[in-house]
Each structure stands twice: as C-alpha cells, then as structure tokens.
Design a protein around this nucleic acid. Structure first.
Length: 276
DNA sequence: CCTCTATGGCGAA
DNA sequence: TCGCCCTAGAGGC
C-alpha cells in the first residue's frame, strides 16, 4: 500500500540487505519464474527508486533490471530465510540465505534493460525524495504554475509529482490551507514552492519511519483529549479518510468526494475557496 | 462464510 | 469515466 516514501524505503532496505551480494532469486507463484531463473545466483548490484517505481539491478545479461510497481495492493516484505508460507502468491523472492524479501500482488514485475529503465524514469515528474537539484522540480514548477487543472488533480499526476499519492495530496493541501479544486494557475509561485518543500519534508519523514504522520504535536489525539484514530492506515493524519469526523484544528466536519476516481478529503473551513 | 475497500494505473469506450 | 487487475484486512451475518 505504497506512496513514494514506501518505495524509496524498500530500495534502501534492499540495498542494506542485499547490495553487492550473490542472491537466490525465484518466483514461487510462477508468473515471474523465467526471469527469476535468469537472475538466480547473480549479484544484486543495487536497488533504486523514482516516485512509485522500484528498480533492482543485477549483474549480468542485457535485461538485468527488475522493474516493480506495487500498484494499490502490492507489498514487498522482509523475513527470515526459510520455507515460503504462501507459495501461491509470492511473485518474486530474493534471498541471501539469511534474510529474504518477498513480493506480493504487484501491479508490475518485469525484467528490462538499462535503456528501458531510463525511459521509464524519463516519463516521471519531480520526485520529492530525490536529492535537491536532481529532482526536476524547476521545470515542473513552471508547468503547474500555468495549469488550469485543479491542484488536487495535478498533485496525483505522476508525470508531474512522482511518488505523491492520495494521502500526501490530502495532507499537504490541508497543511497549507488550500482548497483542492483551486486551479494550479491560481496559486502563486511561493505557494507552489511551499507545497513542494512540505512534500519533501513529509515524505522524507515517511521514508524514515515507514508511516505517514502529518499531525503536529499540539493536534495529536493525546494533546486534544481525543481517542486515537480507529482507521489505522499506519499514521496520524488531519483529513485522509476522516469524512464526517471533526477537524483536529477547527472541529468542522471533514468533507469527501470522488475526484477522477479517487477519494478526496478536505476541511471546508480550514481550506476555504480563494477569492480572486 | 460473504462483501467491501484500499496509499494505483491501465486500456477500452 | 468506467471496468479491471492484483491481495489483504475489516466488517457483516
């Protein structure tokens, strides 16, 4: 259940566990068995990510990069080496004999070349988790500042904001008091910069912790005398999946609607429509 | 048991 | 805009 922070965290964990090692590669489920056999016994040189796309490089052949996209429900987990408890669902398993990583339910898991890797990354926009300067933000900023599309739509467009998903979208708009239907061209450059800076900070924290926590200390359930959230997606948030519940800041009920097929959440009181 | 939903993205209309 | 793909967990009966 991944936004970009999860993918970058996975790349880091894969590197910590396997980079530079000769590994066993298999596909207990069978769908990826051919490519897995071709990689089995080769060195895993490094894992890297751009947005929600994960790339695992192996030494050897022309096609030596495993390109993974987890989609909505995919998971990549680590556990001790040993017999696979769920052989029917594991698309890819990588093991060094001590620990193993196993991939479940990915949207994609394919073997590609370096050139195809470059092409896949080139289709993606600015990634808040890349080092400053290498993140493509300058050119993307110019585009979104001119756009007549809504800021909610722009933030979910992976060719503009690579790695941002439905939770970070909702939370960054709340934190900056922006009504989600505001057009990109109606936000000034400083506001767009604030959005970008916020995404970089929030997602870097998410990469470290493996959770999305956006709620400031003085608004936590404990500080506000509220019960902790029941709907636990793995972090404490202001608006995501809080439809009908009171806003942590102003107590106005949180609103939701479906926009372009995805649930959108915001506080109509903290995020009023702009007067222009 | 069943049904629903989900942090995503594609391709058919 | 809709249906569809993949899996797991929650909730209802």
């Amino acid at each position: 259940m991944p936004e970009g922070h999860v993918i970058h965290r996975l790349a880091r964990m894969l590197n910590e566990q396997f980079a530079g090692k000769t590994v066993a590669v298999s596909s207990p489920q069978g769908v990826f068995a051919g490519p897995a056999a071709a990689l089995d016994g080769h060195e895993l040189t490094r894992a890297h990510a751009w947005g929600k796309h994960l790339f695992i490089d192996f030494a050897g052949g022309l096609e030596h990069v495993v390109h993974i996209h987890l989609g909505l429900i995919g998971q990549f987990r680590f556990s001790a080496a040993g017999p696979e408890p769920l052989p029917g669902v594991v698309r890819l398993e990588i093991s060094d004999g001590d620990r193993r990583a196993h991939l479940h339910g990915p949207q994609w898991c394919r073997l590609i070349t370096d050139a195809e890797t470059d092409a896949a990354v080139a289709r993606l926009g600015a990634d808040p988790l890349q080092p400053a300067g290498a993140d493509r933000w300058e050119s993307i900023a110019a585009k979104v500042q001119r756009s007549r599309r809504t800021v909610a739509s722009l933030l979910m467009d992976q060719s503009l904001f690579a790695g941002v998903g439905n939770i970070y979208r909702a939370e960054v708009l709340f934190l900056h008091h922006i009504e989600p239907h505001t057009r990109g061209c109606d936000l000034d450059a400083a506001t767009w910069q604030n959005i970008w800076d916020e995404l970089r900070e929030l997602m870097a924290a998410g990469e470290r912790t493996g959770r999305i926590d956006t709620v400031r200390e003085d608004h936590t359930p404990a500080a506000m005398g509220r019960p902790p959230r029941k709907d636990d997606h793995g972090g404490e948030v202001y608006v995501y999946r809080r439809e009908g519940l009171d806003c942590h800041v102003c107590q106005h009920p949180i609103t939701a609607e479906v926009l372009e097929g995805r649930n959108l959440f915001w506080c109509p009181s903290c995020q009023p429509e702009r007067q222009r």
